[in-house]
């Protein structure tokens, strides 16, 4: 029983991290049809910023990471994506690949390719006892932060003018522009928001792994793409739920697979993803806007 509860909490907290990655990717995908591989480097740069500011007062370090990553996201949008915005998806994709490659090797150039260990808030690693269940504080923090942030993003998208414009752009970008939505502003805000999400993910991820290495964001970004697509392309709640689902399946597989198959866990997760795509090609949570029209 305790084991089951612990596994559940684990599943939700991993899923929460994935859900934030997926939301960051889903935002850009919805508006620009961009699969942004550089999202993985946004997270990695956040982790390196935290590593550099490890001695500082934690809230300040976290804020610094957020500022750095958001500025990076805005800079990337301005320098790399704006010039090719109207190109076809393959060109956008290769652009994001190239940006990702550039940032990753810039980190290699500055910090070297080896992982660097550091300790971000060691007290987070200690478990809390609730009854007989031992739950790491970090898991609780992850879940709480995710819920708060998701609620804030949802409010932002529903209640503010720019948020509503972003949702309109995600439904039909051309129509939104015709109705006076400014493309530059909407896309810049989307990049900023996805940078913010990446920065928060980097804080939680750094606290979890305790290392910084140049390619560490890849796994999160991959899960983010997959979650965005199986959640229903263009649907932001779908992306979040897709992320939660992938995280939960990953942790549950870890718990139920026999030990000699555990190393193949990722293969099972991605096989499940393919199965979902085949059974529900429009995603688990289909968005009305994405129906292909003729």
């Amino acid at each position: 029983m305790t084991y089951a509860v612990q596994t559940m909490v684990d599943a939700v907290s991993v899923g929460a991290l994935y859900a934030m990655s997926a939301l960051g990717i889903g935002l850009l995908f919805g508006i620009m049809r961009l699969i942004n591989f550089a999202q993985s480097e946004f997270v990695t740069v956040g982790v390196y910023t935290l590593m550099l500011s490890a001695g500082l007062w934690f809230p300040f370090a976290a804020l610094l990471a957020i500022v750095v990553v958001v500025l990076l996201a805005l800079a990337v949008e301005r320098a790399a994506f704006r010039p090719v915005r109207d190109a076809d998806p393959a060109t956008l994709l290769i652009t994001s690949f190239a940006v990702s490659y550039l940032l990753q090797y810039a980190l290699v150039l500055i910090f070297g390719a080896r992982p660097i260990g550091f300790d971000l808030l060691p007290q987070l690693g200690q478990p809390v006892l609730i009854g007989e269940v031992r739950i790491p504080r970090l898991n609780i923090v992850t879940i709480v932060v995710t819920v708060v942030l998701m609620a804030a993003v949802a409010l932002f998208l529903r209640r503010t003018r720019i948020g509503i414009e972003m949702r309109a752009a995600a439904v039909d970008f051309r129509m939104a522009r015709l109705l006076g939505v400014r493309a530059d502003r909407v896309i810049a805000v989307a990049f900023g928001l996805s940078g913010l999400l990446a920065a928060v993910v980097s804080v939680l991820f750094a606290a979890q792994t305790g290392t910084a290495s140049p390619a560490m964001g890849l796994q999160l970004a991959l899960v983010g793409f997959v979650a965005t697509v199986i959640g229903g392309m263009g649907s932001l709640p779908g992306a979040v739920l897709g992320g939660l689902a992938v995280g939960a399946v990953t942790v549950l597989l870890q718990a139920v697979l026999p030990p000699d198959l555990r190393v193949y866990r990722e293969a099972f997760v991605y096989a499940a993803v393919i199965a979902v795509l085949v059974l529900r090609p429009q995603g688990l949570f289909r968005s009305a806007a994405m129906r292909e029209r003729v």
Binding site: I35, L222, V226, M233, Y264, E266, A271, L277, V278
Partner: peptide
């Protein structure tokens, strides 16, 4: 057989998932 049943981005993500599967299996 799976990929051609899907359209556009779903097909691409299915191939990405396939790459991750093959990589995991071969690596282990």
């Amino acid at each position: 057989l799976v990929v051609v049943r899907l359209s556009g981005i779903a097909a691409s993500i299915a191939t990405l998932a396939w790459l991750a599967i093959v990589n995991t299996v071969l690596a282990n």
